[in-house]
Write a protein that binds this DNA or RNA. Structure first.
Lengths: 149, 149
DNA sequence: CCCTAATTCGCAATGCTTGCGAATTAACAA
DNA sequence: TTGTTAATTCGCAAGCATTGCGAATTAGGG
């Protein structure tokens, strides 16, 4: 169980990598720590802006890219804007067709089960995406209400 | 094992749905039939253009959208341009980190195995993406050659 | 052969992300 | 503290993938 790095640990990791620790980055480290909402860059930018008006979306993207490159963040592509997950555990995701909500899911690692068609392919990671209806949306039959994040 | 629909079957399905069968669509039906390369709209457009100069990228997108809506095509989001898979079997994919090659992979359906975190989520589909190195790229150590499709 | 709704297709517009460059700033050493 | 320098910030423009729109065309049933 690799746990999510604390803002302090990220500061150390950044400096160790020859990267600078700016106020903008420290803010983002904090906003990401323990964050389970799988935010997009835009969402994170909005939250960050509230606390630090003037921070730029460009900087948010930059920092997210750096974090992902260091393996401290998971870059999730589900169509539309990319989502970022500070939980770098080996885990998977469920995505609600109706409201778009993304949640963490833990399952037995599928690269240990027998698969056909993987001839010689060396697996680095295996990620499952469960699509369907979240409990809240499953109830309301054809509810079209789509809430962001 | 739901098999891939033939161009003729798609013609029937389209008319049944009140959609017209145009030369452009027939061409795309043919290009997609048995196609295992997981092409992007752009790639498909290029191939189609060779046979039917003047066909528009817009039309390719339109037809792919229609096919996907009818469930005759799988819309795959892996970052970058969407890929389309005429194989609508319950299957998964491997993606090479180096060359981007996408291949079909068959694995035991993961929605039958025990998962934690799926509380009340009703699963419509579970798709696994295996990331890593394909046999060809695994050999060449740090080869940066990235071939399209 | 006609009618009409569906389609094609080009262009503009959108949404997401990255490139670029000038001004600023963190971090390290003197 | 001050100086030096490379990293960073940030706004804008550019890029890629995709969709909206509308005029002209066409499939397909009557």
């Amino acid at each position: 169980m690799k746990s999510v790095k604390s803002p302090e640990e990220l500061v150390v990791a950044f400096r160790a990598a020859g990267l600078k620790v700016t106020p903008q980055r420290q803010l983002l480290f904090r906003l990401l720590h323990g964050n389970e909402m799988h935010p997009t860059a835009e969402t994170l930018y909005e939250v960050a802006s509230a606390e630090m008006p003037g921070i730029s979306l460009r900087t948010v993207y930059q920092t997210l890219t750096d974090l992902a490159a260091m393996g401290e963040l998971q870059h999730i592509q589900l169509g539309g804007a990319a989502r970022f997950d500070p939980n770098v555990d080996d885990h998977h995701h469920s995505v609600c067709d109706a409201c778009g909500d993304v949640r963490d899911v833990y399952a037995p690692n599928p690269d240990h089960v027998s698969v056909a068609g993987l001839d010689g392919f060396s697996v680095r990671a295996a990620r499952i995406v469960f699509s369907g209806k979240c409990p809240r949306c499953a109830g309301a039959a054809d509810d079209l209400s789509v809430s962001k994040q």
